Computed example of a mutant assay.
Amino acid sequence: MTRSVEDEGTRIEAQPDTTTCGPTCLHALYRHFGEDVDLDEVIDTIRRLDHGGTLDVFLANHALGRGYSAEIYTYNLGVFDPTWFEGKVDLAAKLEAQEAAKDDDKLSIATAGYLEFLAAGGRLRFADLTRTLIRRLLRDGHPVLTGLSATYLYRSMREWGPDDADDDIRGLPVGHFVLLTDYDRSTLEVGIADPMAENPHGAQRYRVHIDRVIGAILLGSLTYDANLVVLRPGHEHEGRAP
């Protein structure tokens, strides 16, 4: 199902701790686009949740603040209703109405992030997550940041407690951020740049069959992930990518 690849192309550092996978992926994207920015700076300036992690939208907002364009393809049905993407719908108004109707702290945090995202010019998409979509998004050679289920991607045990101990009985699924770097049509594999140095694949660069990647992204909805974040440089960054 998987095979290692040499560490070439998209370079990614090892995440400093168990909760900084998102900022580490974003840092690798900035570097891909030619920006010389310190990883610690990225980590320190991204909004974090109480448990220390973050959300895809906060990563996108950070990039918008640096002059990038940002699109999010979302599959998180805990935040978005599919009918909101049919015709001309005021997504901000729908998000605000939903927050008022539901007593959910995490939803409120995510809603604030998405309202900021929309106000800053970010674009939200809802499209079938298919091989064709992933191929198209990777066709121009730029990585795509995704929040997904590490439990499904790695086929690892669910985790439990403050130390994230493996526990197949009490454990809960775990979310994670990685970069999708390329697609090989001959093997149907997607290249992954993974900020977790000690992961079950044994390397930070490896390849996974596209069907497992699709499943992992969709199951990211269990942990408020399930998004593809597509960033592109704005005018102030154009021409700087190596």
Rank of each mutant, 00 (worst) to 15 (best):
I210W: 02
T10H: 06
L228G: 06
E238V: 15
Y224T: 10
P200S: 01
P162G: 03
I169R: 14
Y224V: 11
E116P: 01
L115K: 11
L95K: 00
L39T: 06
L55I: 06
D184L: 08
V79Q: 05
R11Y: 09
A92T: 10
Y73I: 08
L59P: 02
Y183R: 04
G113M: 03
R232E: 03
D44T: 07
I217T: 00
H235D: 14
N227C: 11
R47T: 14
R131T: 14
V57Q: 00
P16A: 10
E99C: 09
F80N: 05
L129T: 01
R66M: 06
D104C: 00
E35I: 11
A101M: 09
M1N: 14
Y75M: 08
E99Y: 09
T24Y: 08
D194N: 09
A150Q: 13
P233A: 03
G220Q: 02
D128A: 11
M196C: 07
D211P: 01
F33S: 11
V174L: 15
A193I: 04
R48D: 02
P162A: 12
G22I: 04
L172T: 15
G234M: 04
P242H: 09
M1P: 12
L133A: 09
E189T: 14
D182I: 03
L133W: 08
V89K: 14
H209G: 05
A216C: 08
H209M: 07
